[in-house]
Design a protein around this nucleic acid. Structure first.
Length: 289
DNA sequence: TTCAATGTTTAGAC
DNA sequence: GGTCTAAACATTGA
């Protein structure tokens, strides 16, 4: 379940490993996954890797930019690249057993081959994700980027901004509101659950009933959840570099997500699972009011 | 066999 | 038009 912290982790890893490399060839195994002309990428150099919300961008020479969205089950796996020897991999995204096995595998959709022999595999079990080629100077015209709300990790994202952005969702449960990408960028289901647990706020509460105190706690919770994710995402990457498997994924550190029926880490109560906005929602009825 | 899972888009109801 | 709900997308595994 790649969310903002996973994409951020991939960005840091990829930027280090493929910046300056030339794309030798691109192989599209699933045409539906790839939008644009893959041949136009051949011979282009990687200038930089960036992220906006859950979208990963790779700027190339020749005014071209590659955009990736991993959606629910995407993975990016790089074997080789700058720095250490071959066989070193940087991976991120949806964790599966086979992501550390042979590449390509049956969920590989696109393969990028770089000069020097490094290969980047875009895997996506459910084919929801996509790769897109556009002109770099058109990036800002992309509808899905224009609609996104502010980045929660930027300094300018204060609790007042949070209040203003989700304020018009007054009848929505607070959890559903903070997952609205046009209000705030990059808060997905897992981190929404964790942020509300940290803030000790009941996910079912309506936005209109939140006090300024609640907004302050919520603001802090969102940032903490995302920052912890990045911290542990980094741990995941380090493990993979050593080919130790997928231990260290953020879910191992989640306090409530996926823990229904288990003991709440904050009290003696039990984590409960409900549905909100059609999504699985986990919370502790005792701690979160 | 049916259901739930992740993120986003889209269609439709008020 | 704004707000909100629910279904759709593809696939797998419980």
């Amino acid at each position: 379940m790649p969310e903002l912290p996973e994409i951020e982790t991939i960005k840091i890893g990829l930027d280090k490993k493929i910046k300056g490399l030339k794309i030798k060839r691109v192989e599209v195994l699933n045409p539906k996954t790839f939008q644009g002309d893959d041949k136009s990428l051949w011979g282009k150099n990687v200038l930089k890797v960036w992220r906006k919300a859950k979208v990963l961008g790779v700027d190339l020479s020749g005014n071209l930019t590659l955009l990736f969205h991993l959606k629910m089950s995407g993975q990016l796996i790089l074997i080789g690249g700058r720095g250490k020897g071959k066989g070193v991999r940087v991976v991120g995204g949806h964790p599966t057993q086979d992501m550390k096995g042979e590449m390509p595998n049956k969920s590989t959709r696109v393969i990028f081959e770089f000069s020097g022999g490094a290969k980047l595999y875009f895997n996506d079990q459910r084919k929801f994700g996509w790769v897109k080629v556009i002109e770099t100077d058109k990036v800002e015209d992309q509808d899905f980027l224009k609609k996104l709300g502010p980045e929660p990790l930027e300094k300018s994202f204060t609790w007042q901004v949070l209040k203003e952005r989700i304020g018009n969702h007054k009848n929505l449960p607070v959890k559903v509101a903070i997952m609205d990408q046009s209000a705030i960028s990059g808060v997905g289901n897992i981190y929404a659950n964790e942020a509300l647990f940290d803030a000790k706020i009941d996910p079912r509460r309506k936005v209109s009933g939140l006090s300024d105190e609640d907004y302050k706690k919520l603001h802090k919770g969102v940032i903490k959840a995302l920052e912890d994710g990045i911290k542990y995402g980094g741990a995941t990457r380090a493990h993979f570099v050593n080919s130790e498997g997928e231990r260290g994924y953020f879910l191992d550190y989640a306090k409530v997500y996926g823990k229904d029926g288990e003991k709440c880490p904050g009290c003696k109560g039990e984590v409960k699972k409900i549905q909100l906005g059609g999504r699985g929602t986990y919370y502790c009825p005792n701690c979160q009011k």
